[in-house]
Simulated assay, not measured.
Amino acid sequence: MDGVRIIDAMKATSSTPRARALAAGLREVREAHGVGLRQLARILGFAPQVLSLWEKGLRLPSVADVALILGFFKVRGEKQKHFLELARTARDPDWVSTGSPEIPEPLSGLLECERAATSVTNWALGIIPGLLQTADYARALLSNSNLTVAQADARLAVRLGRQKILTRPEPIRLSVVLYEAAFREPVGDEDIMSDQYDHLLAMSRLPNVSLRILPSGQGYHPGLLGSFLLYDYEDLPPIAFLENYSGSVFLSEREHISAYRQLAKMVSGNALSEEASRELIAEVTRQPEA
């Protein structure tokens, strides 16, 4: 029986967004209970290397195996339903999810995308990207998002936690093209914006961060249809992430990735250089109050 379980568990996965969300969720549940990977594998009769592949999103567990893990940790209710739905649909290439007042459902997928990525490409149309926001700027955004204080605090903690991928020992490479109108849009008071501009300047000088501004007033281009992020990996297929007010979309099919790469190349080709972008940010910080 154990041999059959190992064979089934070793079926390859395309590392879809849902598969990565499932992998991250299973790992988080185990770590939250203070149980080691080998310990759990021994208790449930899995090969440790198989459980490790599941938690990395490189192989897919069966729905029954996911149910067994959830049962061991007494995961019930909506969280159990969420994990089982991910397990049933893990091979689907794309993922459209409706938002909610709580932490959005696909957040574990987004965190896993960023945790494992080697590089992130971000076209930011409406606001300064979350990976480059100060705590006060992010809090000002969240306070105007119809959230309770508890919900806003929870999202703020997650957003600030995400930023560690830029300064960890082996940081990701982040390439941002920021629309000038978003860069200039006031969020909060003047002190918040002043600190945010200073933070952008500091982050733009990191060797793994490229920040360029696309001037507004150039007429229509496809980038005006919405922001997006592209995640690239050393050994896994790339993923595109799109977010709007009421939902999020993860895309992994080749034609979608190709389309967003072309769009990223287009907006990058029209953006200011890194040095000119820093000069523009510094100029704005020096502007006298009206």
Rank of each mutant, 00 (worst) to 15 (best):
G226D: 08
S119F: 02
Y179S: 06
Y179F: 14
A202D: 13
Y231C: 05
A181C: 09
V187G: 12
P238D: 03
L166D: 03
V50C: 04
P207L: 06
E31L: 11
L229K: 03
L22F: 10
A138Q: 13
V29S: 05
L110H: 03
A140D: 15
S100P: 05
A19P: 05
R205W: 00
L166G: 05
P222K: 06
R286N: 10
G34S: 05
H33E: 09
A264C: 11
P237K: 00
V63H: 08
Y231Q: 02
L132E: 01
L200T: 10
L147W: 09
P48C: 03
G25E: 04
H33F: 11
Y137V: 06
N208C: 01
L224P: 02
V149S: 13
E283Y: 13
S62N: 08
L58I: 06
R139T: 12
K11N: 11
L37F: 04
K74E: 12
G269P: 11
A290K: 13
Q39H: 04
Q49P: 00
E283Q: 15
H221Y: 14
V75D: 04
L211M: 08
S108V: 03
R173H: 00
R286C: 08
A282C: 06
R88T: 09
R168G: 04
N122H: 14
G126R: 10
T121N: 02
L107H: 08
W95F: 03
A157F: 09
A282F: 07
T148Q: 09
L214D: 09
L141E: 14
R278G: 14
A202H: 12
E234L: 05
S204P: 08
S108F: 01
L166I: 07
A90Q: 15
L141V: 14
L224Q: 04
S277Q: 02
